[in-house]
Nucleic acid binder design. Structure first.
Lengths: 223, 223
DNA sequence: CGGGCGCTTGAGGGGTTTCAATTTAGGTGG
DNA sequence: CCACCTAAATTGAAACCCCTCAAGCGCCCG
């Protein structure tokens, strides 16, 4: 794990995106690197920071005592996470690949928020988006079939993680399965089916790169 | 639908509970009655109010185009709902039984919040609790068995809706099923099994009144 | 080049759903 | 107050979707 500390001013928003643009104050932030598989924060730990993905990918999850896992979300380049809206994290966050994160002290953010209403609105929006995502997930996990779930996953990733028309999946089949409430075998089978049916094609050799050929069709399967 | 309007002062909190206690300002609120099965607000409508259950019970749900339904939450006496954290409702809310609600204009609440930090904290806490509930639901819907789901439901209701040791369920089996991501038949079968195994007993004649005989056992099944 | 991990694929099994019938409870009107 | 009607809940049998267990393949990395 590697650390650099810095000070970010309004006119020099290194990567804070929305937050940096909106703030007219300085926000203290620092960059950390996490290598493949390492924990960023654990369930139950104090939520002192919020995070933004500079490079890489992150997964958050909850566990049952016997090891069953539910992944709550994947966070990709630019995504902000960790605003769990409480003082304790209810998920564990791990780096999927080698990942660089921007850490922002929650305290510092709240101090700035006092004088920057736009920042408050921005934080609100992010929390609302977060909630909406989780609520849609509930419908998917409670009421959709394996085929629909995988179609939904592809549709989501296709709108978030495409580079040159290709989805480069940072996560393995087990991660996808634990995100969708399925087994990795079922995910694999559904992907193969979609390929045979012409909805997608595998670009790379390792089956982690997917080209969606019929996104409208997939969206329709998802409903 | 019947309406009475009123003005609620700090020292006369009619039923505002937390909110009334915390506020040092007046909040304009009004009471509405909804009869069994009626819609309180619909998915996509503007979220101008927040609601508190004075009497009765409410369910919120999302629908798929073919009628599959996922219930997000049940709201019982005293519960506050509708702080969807956006300007549009993402769920439809319906009265399960004849229900009396307290409506509070969101605007009015935000105005008061400006001068009452305790109110802000209270609203935050409620939103956080809301999010936590939804997140736990994700784990249940994605990774738990029917037996575990029903045990979780009974554990939840046992801590929320008991009167004299008896859970008086306001909702029918289909509502429970749509809450747990199961079919009503599966819910019925699991309840019968729990009865045979001595975890619970049916109090009334209509199987809507349940006495939990071994709450520790049920909690253990839920994990 | 060998080992291991990730992914795919197959066969079989099981938990939940689907379809269907029966029982029970509650409401209504004669 | 009872017969009737309808909705709710239970119960059974069969089907099905997804999971479990297992084997095989290919790619990446040491």
């Amino acid at each position: 794990m590697f650390k650099t500390s810095m000070r970010i001013a309004k006119d020099k928003p290194r990567f804070l995106g929305e937050l940096g643009d909106l703030s007219h104050e300085t926000v203290s932030a620092s960059e950390f690197k996490y290598s493949h598989g390492n924990e960023i924060f654990g369930q139950g730990e104090a939520a002192d920071y919020i995070y933004q993905v500079v490079e890489g990918a992150v997964r958050t999850h909850q566990l049952l005592s016997d090891g069953r896992r539910q992944i709550g979300a994947f966070h990709l380049r630019g995504d902000i996470f960790g605003l769990d809206n409480g003082d304790v994290h209810r998920f564990t966050a791990e780096a999927i690949t080698d990942t660089t994160l921007l850490l922002i002290k929650r305290q510092s953010l709240e101090r700035v928020a006092k004088t920057a209403p736009a920042m408050v609105r921005s934080l609100r929006t992010m929390t609302a988006d977060n909630l909406e995502h989780v609520e849609n997930r509930m419908l998917l996990l409670g009421r959709q079939s394996a085929r629909e779930r995988v179609a939904a996953f592809l549709t989501e990733m296709n709108s978030r993680a495409t580079a040159g028309g290709v989805i480069a999946l940072p996560m393995n089949r087990r991660d996808i399965a634990d995100y969708l409430g399925l087994t990795l075998e079922t995910v694999s089978r559904e992907l193969t089916k979609f390929q045979r049916e012409g909805f997608l094609a595998f670009a790379g050799t390792n089956h982690r790169e997917i080209v969606v050929l019929n996104s409208a069709g997939l969206a329709k399967i998802d409903r």
